[in-house]
Amino acid sequence: MANSQRKRSRPHSPNIQIYRPQLTSVLSIINRMTGVALSAVAVVLVIWLIAAASGPQAYTIVQVVIASRIGQIALVGSAFAFFLHLCGGIRHLVWDAGLGFELRTIYISGWGVVAASVMLTLLAWIASLYVAG
């Protein structure tokens, strides 16, 4: 009897197929998606460290892949995902401290995350080009 009660289908919430996207919900799912994407970046980081430990030949192969067109696009994408997750994560830590829950503040911090992530990605790119000469 308990089992039949469990299996009765219940409505799910939120009904995302009829739910109008808004900054708050979009940033929430972006934080989760960038987290998953950064897991893949973490795997690449370990491969890169192992290549560096293996010697110059293995390291050169990894460097060539990173320097390729696809490698560069992946690198900029990873940087953008990282800064989004970093800024979004700091926003979450502020909420955990019990601050910034007013609707107006939530929208300001949300757009702040987007603006800061774009600017930090550009800054990282420019700094890297400057160092490379």
Binding site: F82, L86, G89, I90, A124, A127, S128, L129, V131, A132
Partner: peptide, 18 residues
């Protein structure tokens, strides 16, 4: 812990571009 550690890492990698 990851806030300072990742910022340190990204800054170091940028510094070692060349």
């Amino acid at each position: 812990a990851l806030v300072p550690l990742t910022i340190w890492f990204v800054a170091s990698i940028i510094a070692h571009t060349a």
